[in-house]
């Protein structure tokens, strides 16, 4: 019985630690607005990785009045994909200290994909840094959490 209690204690400790880490890592989940205010991105978790897709565009239609597509994508077959719903953040993993790394960010404005890290500076603010090769050659965009209005 003592062994069972000891094991239960260990499992609870491991689990509570893991839940704490999960709670920290899952703080990234939600809807965020980019610094320019031109897009909102919903971040979800699939397995242990985080992905973000565009769920709102300030200007959702092109000059012809049709929904915007990913016209600048370097892959021709993807240029007809709608921007709404497009996964622009991919493969982020939580590294502790409110930082998610090893991901990429796609910029539909120019069709480029950059290495990216995300740092949460407070509950409602992300510093999203896209960079080329090394972090020095990059730019940080500050994203703000979006609160959906209740209908």
């Amino acid at each position: 019985m003592k062994k069972a209690l000891l094991l239960l204690f260990i499992l609870i400790s491991v689990k509570s630690g893991s839940l704490l880490a999960q709670s920290e890592s899952d703080a990234l989940l939600g809807v965020w607005e980019s610094g320019s205010g031109k897009a909102r991105v919903k971040i979800d978790k699939v397995s242990d990785k985080f992905f973000g897709k565009i769920v709102w565009l300030k200007e959702p239609n092109n000059e012809e009045g049709k929904p915007k597509v990913d016209k600048n994508n370097p892959e021709e077959k993807l240029r007809t994909a709608p921007l709404l719903g497009y996964r622009m953040l991919k493969d982020f993993t939580y590294k502790g200290e409110k930082t998610w790394e090893d991901g990429t960010i796609y910029d539909p404005e120019n069709g480029s994909t950059y290495s990216c890290t995300i740092k949460m500076t407070d509950d409602n603010t992300l510093e999203v840094r896209g960079f080329i090769g090394v972090s020095l050659f990059g730019r940080t965009d500050v994203w703000k959490r979006i609160q959906l209005k209740k209908k």
Partner: peptide, 23 residues
């Protein structure tokens, strides 16, 4: 913890929103 696969989503809800924390 397993996450659900993407499903068809109503994006119109994301237009009615404000910045959290009064940013």
């Amino acid at each position: 913890m397993a996450q659900e696969a993407d499903t068809v989503e109503d994006y119109s809800m994301y237009g009615e929103a404000e910045l959290a924390g009064g940013a």
